[in-house]
Design a protein around this nucleic acid. Structure first.
Lengths: 206, 206
DNA sequence: GTCTATATTGGGATAGAC
DNA sequence: GTCTATCCCAATATAGAC
């Protein structure tokens, strides 16, 4: 059952726990199943991480950071707004293809235990205020007359929505449009161009 | 604990079960909590619905239909595409404000038990092929030269994504932008115009 | 139909041997 | 560090009285 014989026990646990928590959420995940997938037994699980809660908190923090890191470049990269959006959509779609359950997992668990993620969140965003950084870029371009007078926050949410939702709702999308797996993948590839254009269209003055 | 003294027992159960399943999902929902909320005891729950599974399936089907009904008008209303989009965004945002957990509930449970929803889905979409209807409208307007040559399915997914995601990810959005409840509500209200414009911009030739 | 009491299983957690 | 065996409570489900 273990995924990789080269990992040590702790790594095997983390790999297995991550997979199962992401797919099934806190309530749906069972310690027994995690132990099985890691190729060990429940007792050893509790030896490494004292409780399901502790194990979960660790996995959640790691997952949240992985997702946040994906967003990082949106704030920090040194390129024009259009290029930023184009590259982001492209990278993000590929990332999501490989991490199908990650965003839904985060959204779910944050909804269920909003208090838990406050720590993680403030730790991530307190030091350097990324938002200010990109807002500055926008303001500059607005003044240069290149951009419409839109609320950047709305645009960011639009961008993330259009990227994330089709992956989260994959079975619904496939069902609604009667797609098989190949058609769905093509649909996702085609979206890159469409989402990029839709966003850029909504902010740049032509 | 019971919500409404005028409901009979079965209705009280359904009301309570719906609320709890939507908020906590199948795994997070407990029969005891549902019984408490309905103002009865567990035994009576099992008397009406033989098992948690049966109760859940019923609630899920009802929820799915409620959501599908919201989409209905997108396919069937008799108005221009622009008006359709404008009205839909407006109605949908209000609906989602009052049904915060519904879309996430559906998306989650469909992901977790895709086989379960196949029945419900095909029952809903087999008879009249709604998709063909709206596709016809689009094709007509494309030929009239009013619309860009875009894949309508992509536009629909864009529309639904931008509507649903901010509600599903409400705590994340509030956290990211440091919003309180009032600011979030204003943000949602403002979105109506922005989402409408973004979508219409992406399909209409100016 | 509705209740109390109880059976039964599931799942998180610990003890103790190796 | 790792295992087997066991504890114990939570949660689904049923029996049986009223």
């Amino acid at each position: 059952m273990a995924e990789d014989k080269n990992e040590n026990t702790e790594e095997k646990i983390i790999t297995a726990a991550n997979e199962i928590f992401e797919k099934k959420g806190y309530d749906g995940a069972k310690m027994q199943e995690i132990a099985d997938k890691a190729g060990i037994n429940k007792a050893l699980l509790h030896y490494y991480f004292r409780s399901k809660d502790k194990l979960f908190e660790m996995i959640f923090a790691m997952a949240f950071n992985r997702l946040a890191k994906e967003m990082d470049f949106l704030f920090n990269a040194d390129m024009s707004l259009e290029d930023k959006i184009t590259v982001f959509v492209d990278k993000h779609a590929d990332f999501l293809s490989k991490n199908r359950h990650l965003p839904l997992f985060i959204v779910n668990e944050v909804n269920r235990r909003p208090e838990m993620f406050v720590n993680i969140f403030s730790k991530l965003y307190e030091k350097d205020d990324r938002l200010k950084k990109i807002l500055a870029q926008i303001e500059k371009e607005k003044k240069a007359g290149r951009l419409k007078d839109v609320d950047l926050r709305q645009v960011m949410i639009n961008l993330i929505s259009m990227n994330v939702f089709p992956f989260a709702a994959k079975p619904l999308v496939k069902g609604l449009f009667r797609m098989d797996e190949a058609e769905f993948n093509k649909f996702i590839q085609d979206r890159k161009k469409i989402v990029t254009e839709t966003i850029i269209n909504s902010i740049v003055i032509k």
